[in-house]
């Protein structure tokens, strides 16, 4: 938490020279960023009867919540990894196509469709009598349980996040000067070495941006944990929803939210854009 505040402090100090035009934005940030975070912090210190307590924080360090935190991180990591594995080559191939803007558009359009709608579609696709299992049966195997497994959860999450990962990577690949690649090859670097020592380091900022927009929301996914994973996967997001809506324990819900904010801030720090560029 303090690190975030420090970051914010640094930012406002840097821009001291051009401070006055920022006043409306500062109000905005105060109202919609600082105030909600302060409220969450405040609520996290309250018990069910509205008395101040640290019990919520103590509860977070019990095995249930630690295990949940670990599994949230594990699944967010898997989702980010697979998203990156699919998105990077796709973005790379996109920059090689003739009508790249058109192809990019085609990849982005599905992300305009409502998330819930797409999720429901997957319930049908993965179901015991859905098209995937129909295909499996054509090859003579018994239908498999695909829906309500951690596989289906990761698959659907990866599908949802891919466009958000492709865009920043595509942008940084597209900006890269192609003559650098030619130069590297001319000087005797193999294709793999060229990628590892030239292309990838030059696009690392795009990758970092992509990881941010994938990993952070993936940490708190909750709707598809129920619809696609049938609660076989529980994330911190699920717990927050339950604390607020079912248990009406705003204190505990806020405490989990505080930890999520901390984890997100850490993620931002780790994936901070390197202004100098080049190898990390």
């Amino acid at each position: 938490m303090t690190s975030v505040l420090k970051l914010m402090g640094m930012k406002s100090m840097n821009s001291k020279a051009a401070k006055t035009p920022l006043i409306p934005y500062l109000f905005w940030i105060l109202l919609f960023v600082i105030a909600p975070i302060a409220l969450i912090l405040y609520y996290s210190l309250l018990d069910l009867n509205g008395n101040f307590t640290l019990a919520n924080y103590a509860k977070f360090f019990t095995p249930i919540y630690l295990k949940m935190t670990f599994s949230s991180f594990w699944y967010a990591f898997l989702i980010t990894l697979f998203t990156l594995i699919f998105a990077y080559p796709t973005a790379y191939l996109l920059t090689k196509t003739k009508h790249k803007k058109l192809w990019l558009m085609l990849i982005i359009i599905p992300s305009w469709i409502n998330l819930l709608l797409k999720t429901y579609a997957f319930i049908g696709i993965f179901g015991l009598y859905g098209p995937i299992n129909a295909l499996i049966e054509v090859f003579g195997f018994n239908p498999k349980q695909i829906l309500f497994t951690d596989f289906s959860f990761v698959f659907v999450a990866v599908y949802i996040f891919i466009p958000f990962m492709i865009i920043p990577i595509f942008n940084s690949l597209d900006k890269m000067n192609p003559s650098l690649v030619f130069a590297a090859r001319d000087l005797g670097a193999s294709a793999w070495t060229t990628f590892r020592r030239v292309v990838f380091p030059l696009t690392i900022d795009g990758v970092k941006a992509g990881i941010q927009v994938t990993f952070i929301p993936a940490l708190s996914l909750f709707m598809i944990t129920r619809l696609i994973a049938g609660n076989q996967v529980i994330t911190l997001g699920t717990a927050i929803e339950q604390q607020f809506l079912v248990s009406q324990n705003w204190g505990m819900g806020s405490t989990i939210a505080v930890f999520l904010i901390v984890f997100m801030a850490l993620t931002m720090l780790v994936t901070k854009q390197n202004s100098k560029g080049g190898r990390a």
Partner: peptide, 20 residues
Amino acid sequence: GLTWLGKYNEYFLEFKMNLN
């Protein structure tokens, strides 16, 4: 009451956590 409803939910959460 909220205290016990909360406990029921904690036990339920624990059950869900151990499904997989």
